[in-house]
């Protein structure tokens, strides 16, 4: 295990390093930063859905919570290191509670979808209604649908006046994504990750083998939320404002689409799906002939119908078919990724 792990680590680092220096020649770093942040958000759902079999309709809730946690903490503290920790911890705690409530109640299937969707809506409605001066956390006014503008953005830890922005922020985002990606890789290679995949395949069998599937699912759910929250914290820094739109159903839908299009049960798929579709949306936003939502919807329908595995596994299969050397584990990945919910 250690040897293949080392090999993959080195490969990932080399590819990442090359991309980090080459990408800014094609796209400006401001756009690239948001693509990376969305990539991380896609990865968070890709982890819990593709590898844990938990379809969460409310991944945007954790993203939004992370962004709000960062903004509120940054207004109160006036620097960015501790707020970024809050952006990770608050969604993780929230997901821990929500997950415990759902998984210990043995909720699965469509009910999981309903509850995560409803919780997202509750947050959306609640934050939207906090326009009045009564809603204050410390020095931060929640601001309702106007959101929270004007908080301290990312700075060098320890010196609040050295802001990290522009190109520097892009490099921070890239490194953050690579670190998260490697952590996810490590997690999936650990016994925890393997058991999680076992639970995805067959919950009952794993619990009969003596694993506490409820606790494991709750922890995995919380890890996914932590990653989404981290992405939210970075997003707050990118946009320099947080608004209730982060919690919206449309945002949740997009995350799910990224995962489907990129490929479930892969780590790279959701990242590429997120970055690719977000960039496509950015390009489409510059024309007014065809409505953006229409194309997003069409992509989702067509993928579910014709390419339910997503692009990355399809390309991997094509690669394997044309160059003969079939990778050892190509079949394992997606076949039942969504099966956990089909009951």
């Amino acid at each position: 295990m250690t040897q293949s792990w080392q090999k993959e680590l080195i490969q990932t680092l080399i590819v990442a390093l090359m991309l980090m220096y080459l990408l800014p020649f094609a796209i400006n770093t401001f756009t690239l930063s948001i693509l990376l942040i969305y990539g991380m958000l896609g990865l968070s759902l890709g982890l819990i859905w593709g590898f844990g079999g938990i379809l969460c309709f409310g991944q945007a809730a954790f993203f939004g919570l992370g962004a709000y946690a960062y903004a509120i903490a940054a207004v109160n503290i006036g620097e960015s290191t501790i707020p970024l920790l809050f952006a990770i911890l608050v969604p993780a705690m929230f997901a821990m509670l929500l997950g415990a409530m759902m998984f210990y109640g043995r909720l699965a299937d469509v009910y999981l979808g309903v509850i995560t969707l409803v919780v997202t809506l509750i947050l959306f409605k609640f934050i939207n209604s906090t326009a009045g001066p009564a809603y204050v956390i410390g020095k931060a006014r929640l601001g309702g649908y106007n959101g929270i503008p004007g908080f301290q953005t990312l700075n060098v830890p320890g010196s609040p006046d050295d802001y990290i922005w522009g190109d520097a922020f892009y490099y921070v985002c890239f490194v953050a994504l690579v670190v998260v990606y490697l952590l996810v890789t490590w997690l999936l290679r650990s016994s925890f990750g393997r058991v999680a995949m076992g639970i995805r395949e067959n919950d009952q069998r794993m619990s009969l083998m003596g694993y506490d599937t409820r606790a494991r699912k709750t922890i995995l759910f919380a890890i996914g939320a932590a990653i989404a929250g981290f992405a939210g914290g970075l997003f707050a820094n990118w946009a320099e404002i947080v608004t209730p739109g982060l919690f919206s159903l449309g945002q949740s839908a997009e995350i799910i689409i990224w995962c489907i299009v990129g490929g479930l049960g892969t780590r790279l798929g959701p990242i590429l799906g997120a970055a690719g579709l977000a960039y496509l949306k950015f390009l489409l936003g510059q024309q007014s002939l065809i409505d953006n939502t229409l194309i997003t919807g069409l992509i989702l329908v067509l993928f579910v119908l014709f390419l339910p595995k997503g692009i990355v596994p399809a390309v991997a299969n094509l690669w394997a078919a044309s160059f003969g050397r079939r990778p050892k584990n190509s079949r394992r990945n997606v076949r039942r990724a969504r099966g956990g919910l089909n009951g």
Binding site: L55, D109, V110, G113, A253, I256, I257, I260, I290, D291, N292, T293, L294, I295, T296, G297, L298, I299, L300, V301, V304, L305, P308, R338, L341, N342, G343
Partner: peptide, 30 residues
Amino acid sequence: LVIRHLYGRLVDTMLATWGLSLFFIGIATM
């Protein structure tokens, strides 16, 4: 056109119909 192909796959129908909903929003907007 769509749903007929997805019977018995609860999650896939949910996703496909979600895509349809975005599609209709787009059409109505246009």
